[in-house]
């Protein structure tokens, strides 16, 4: 078993699935010879050839549209959009076609497509390279939105996403692409989609988060533990559809909920989670729900980016507020 980073786990998952399913192919800008700007597809073109790892021209809408056409013919494209801030030209194809084709043909044509894209900031990137706009995509019927929080989760969830018969937007938290190494058994074992993962059990407050913010949230839980507060940390993992049961069960035990996400607060995924708990778990709550999120501002450039994203201190303060 090898110790790998999150981005290496992504490569391993591609490699496994391409080795075992001849219909899986990779396309995107710079994914072939260059192995992707983050090296997520490193070595794949060498191994599988340029018919299965395709360097495309530069047009995100084109990449998504090609995926629709290929998938309708039974291929399983895994496309890389280089940064989430560049995904908007692809939205037309995602919203109008990729997620609708199964429904509008009554299952005659389907779109088993994965669109992978880096997610969030924190690595001193240029403008438009630090976006976390998952809520825009969670509103789209027919689309799954998935975000791993560790190498093992990245490996298992990406395999599941590629095997899913419907489109999946796979968000890769850049901040933790190389944050830590973890032992990942390269055995082709997928992890289930549509469920949350409890990263740390606790009794006083539930923290729901995803992606890179799981790291901050776990650090906050450590700090809270030192202060005598037991926080449960839940990794949402599949951001849409939300696994309401796991969250509601946890809140029923802890009575308190803090939602942490990097994205802006207004109509963020946190609002949906809060609404679910308000609809189905209001009487379990002993304190108002707290949200720790990016501000409703444009993601600032590098010098302010750490003031934008939720910090350990902000998460700790929010949890303490639910207990005060």
């Amino acid at each position: 078993m090898a110790k790998v980073t999150l981005v290496e786990a992504i490569t391993l998952a591609h490699n496994w699935e391409m080795s075992h399913d001849p219909d899986v192919l990779v396309l995107g800008q710079d994914v072939g010879r260059n192995g992707g700007v983050f090296r997520a597809t490193q070595g794949l073109q060498e191994k599988f050839g340029n018919q299965r790892v395709i360097d495309t021209p530069l047009a995100e809408g084109m990449i998504a549209g090609l995926c629709v056409g290929m998938a309708a013919q039974g291929l399983k494209p895994v496309a890389e959009i280089q940064f989430m801030g560049f995904i908007y030209p692809a939205m037309d194809q995602i919203v109008n076609h990729m997620t609708r084709l199964r429904n509008r043909t009554r299952g005659r044509l389907t779109c088993p497509v994965v669109i992978r894209t880096p997610h969030g900031g924190g690595i001193h990137s240029p403008e438009h390279h630090s976006e976390s706009v998952e809520s825009m995509f969670c509103h789209i019927p027919g689309l799954r939105v998935v975000c791993p929080s560790s190498p093992a989760r990245a490996y298992g969830l990406l395999l599941a996403a590629i095997r899913e018969p419907d489109p999946v937007l796979f968000l890769e938290p850049v901040r933790i692409y190389r944050y830590a190494r973890q032992e990942v058994e390269d055995n082709g074992q997928a992890l289930p989609l549509d469920v949350c993962y409890v990263l740390r059990e606790g009794t006083d407050c539930t923290i729901v988060t995803w992606g890179a913010m799981t790291v901050e949230s776990l650090k906050a839980a450590e700090e809270l533990a030192r202060q005598g507060i037991s926080a449960e940390v839940i990794d949402l993992a599949t951001i849409s559809p939300i696994d309401a049961e796991t969250i509601l069960d946890s809140v029923a035990r802890t009575g308190r909920l803090v939602i942490v996400h990097e994205a802006a607060r207004n109509v963020g995924v946190g609002a949906e989670i809060a609404a679910i708990v308000a609809e189905h778990g209001l009487y379990d709550l002993e304190a108002p729900i707290q949200r720790v999120t990016g501000y409703d501002t444009i993601v600032p450039l590098a010098r302010l980016e750490h003031d934008y994203a939720p910090s350990v201190a902000r998460i700790v303060a929010a949890v303490r507020a639910t207990l005060s």
């Binding site: 395709i54 549209g65 090609l66 995926c67 056409g69 290929m70 013919q73 076609h97």
Partner: peptide, 10 residues
């Protein structure tokens, strides 16, 4: 037009 191109690529 992109769906046709995608099918053609397949």
């Amino acid at each position: 037009t992109l769906h046709a191109a995608g099918a053609a690529l397949a």
